[in-house]
Design a protein around this nucleic acid. Structure first.
Lengths: 181, 181
DNA sequence: ATCAGCATGTAAGGCGTTACATGATTCA
DNA sequence: TGAATCATGTAACGCCTTACATGCTGAT
């Protein structure tokens, strides 16, 4: 099984639901999966080009009006490639948290600096959590719809972990201030 | 403020505690911060070279015995650079979870595939959590020691989030099986 | 004697970001 | 008319991973 480029799988996954342009794909990524996966134009457009050459996607329309817009459709080969990837239980799960890095080395400065860094993180998380909770509540009503269910499952992962982050923030601030558990 | 390379900050952070060789640095990263940050030899050695040229670190010994071993020490300039980075509240926090990606697109196959992927994830998390809990329990006894406290704070972040992951796994499996919340 | 671990480094390649370049359309 | 958004793409650069190359040392 060839090392699949992850962005390819994201694109195939999105195209397995509906035909989309590169621009649409970017919007879908930003709105639906951005909290655990990112994509950029400089990433997506070349990937689409390569995948077309590889026969994983087809362009099904060039321009409906004057504005140029290229809509892509997944091919059978693309669909197989997506399924192969899904069936492979190996998965790379990574976090890269600069906030934790700064905290780990926080001893080089006053505790107030670490506290400020944690509070910054806390505020960011609070905002994101509010959004995710909103999605979740809507999706929860439609778990009978499979697409909505899978979306709900990922969003609720976000809610669960972000709530854990906030719990940790409170504890960490307390320890930094009082040295108490 | 120049865009600091993150690996440079990791190295400076470690060197702010003790003088280390490149090999030692790799070991420290693997054992202490690997659950939220990674480093590789092909990453560390070139960084040390560049940082020596930039005057952020000095090599303080070439070889104590026959075996070549280069020990680095942080300079005042390096120390300032580390502090500047710590004081900057901006931080990039990213997760890239292929497991969530697979789940999000799980509708392309039978639910059993998604269940298997979640269980795979769950087992990995259980193992990692056991390790982290072990660290945490030891560190908890020494919160009066600042170095231990900062280490404890990051490790407990791991415990808190991994526990949330497991909670989510149970919920997600239930929903996949029964379609119930 | 042999293997695991110590120790340093280079080279190639992969993958991604950022910034740039271009132009149409829609709405205030 | 000007700004925002739609829409596609390229180029340069940054950073990291993997694999390779080399050789010593200590334990079994």
């Amino acid at each position: 099984m060839a090392r699949e480029k992850k962005i390819d799988m994201v694109i195939l996954g999105l195209l397995s639901h509906e035909d989309l342009s590169g621009y649409d794909i970017k919007k879908r990524i930003d709105s639906m999966i951005s909290f655990f996966w990112k994509g950029s134009f400089g990433n997506i457009y070349p990937a689409l080009k390569d995948m077309e050459e590889a026969g994983l996607v087809n362009r099904i329309s060039e321009s409906d009006s004057g504005r140029e817009k290229i809509i892509y459709k997944i091919t059978d080969k693309g669909s197989e490639s997506l399924k192969d990837w899904l069936k492979d239980e190996q998965a790379v799960n990574e976090i890269r948290y600069e906030t934790l890095l700064k905290l780990f080395f926080g001893g080089a400065l006053d505790k107030a600096v670490s506290l400020a860094n944690i509070e910054q993180f806390e505020n960011k998380v609070k905002g994101d959590l509010r959004l995710l909770k909103g999605y979740c509540e809507n999706l929860k009503e439609h778990l009978d719809n499979d697409d909505h269910m899978y979306y709900y499952l990922t969003a609720s992962f976000g809610v669960e972990t972000y709530e854990a982050y906030l719990k940790w923030c409170m504890k960490a601030k307390k320890i930094l201030k009082n040295g108490v558990v």
